[in-house]
């Protein structure tokens, strides 16, 4: 499987089911601040939009990591943090232009999406389809899957 998480902010209602599912799956508890998917909410205007890792083919976070703790999974194509090797320097947070990496200050390690071995919990629970997993049928160039890119052939996960 090779694919990417695609978000549609217009559909996000800010229910935080994705953060709750993510933190339960990865941390065994409900702690939205430890989720790998982050929903930015502006309660005054009821704005909400999810931020998820794009799993770049040529990931700046991995380049920035001084110890090579950011690796690409051969099965899913997910860029993940090897927490054994992570030294908590936060260089990857700086390097990610999407702001998709956060930090667990208790454990002193970077937190990022690992695509849940190809079955992302956030996609599973999202009630509106604001986060979807789009799998590539054929690999194209370095651009991301998305409705705006007609060159990329893709199928929806569902």
């Amino acid at each position: 499987m090779e694919g990417a998480l695609v978000t549609d902010p217009a559909k996000c209602t800010g229910c935080l089911q994705c953060e709750l599912a993510c933190s339960l799956k990865h941390e065994g508890q409900f702690a939205p601040w430890l989720a790998r998917v982050v929903v930015h909410r502006t309660p005054e205007t009821c704005l909400a939009f999810p931020n998820v890792c794009q799993h770049c083919e040529d990931p700046p976070c991995a380049h920035a990591c001084p110890v090579g703790a950011l690796k690409t999974s051969p099965g899913t194509g997910a860029v993940y943090v090897d927490v054994v090797e992570c030294i908590g320097c936060r260089e990857c947070l700086e390097a990610c232009s999407h702001g998709s990496i956060s930090f667990d200050s208790d454990k002193g390690v970077a937190l990022k999406c690992d695509l849940c071995n190809g079955e992302p919990a956030c996609v599973d629970v999202c009630p509106t389809g604001a986060i979807r997993l789009e799998r590539y049928v054929a690999r194209g160039s370095d651009c991301l899957a998305g409705p705006g890119n007609p060159d990329r052939r893709r199928t929806d996960d569902e």
Partner: peptide
């Protein structure tokens, strides 16, 4: 209707965020 909103952990999202159109401009 400007947006649909959810309370914490709610997949129904019956909550609205709305703005005026014809009169009372800027009311939302």
């Amino acid at each position: 209707l400007v947006r649909r909103e959810s309370c914490f952990a709610c997949p129904i999202s019956c909550k609205r965020y709305s703005a005026t159109r014809a009169r009372y401009s800027g009311s939302e």
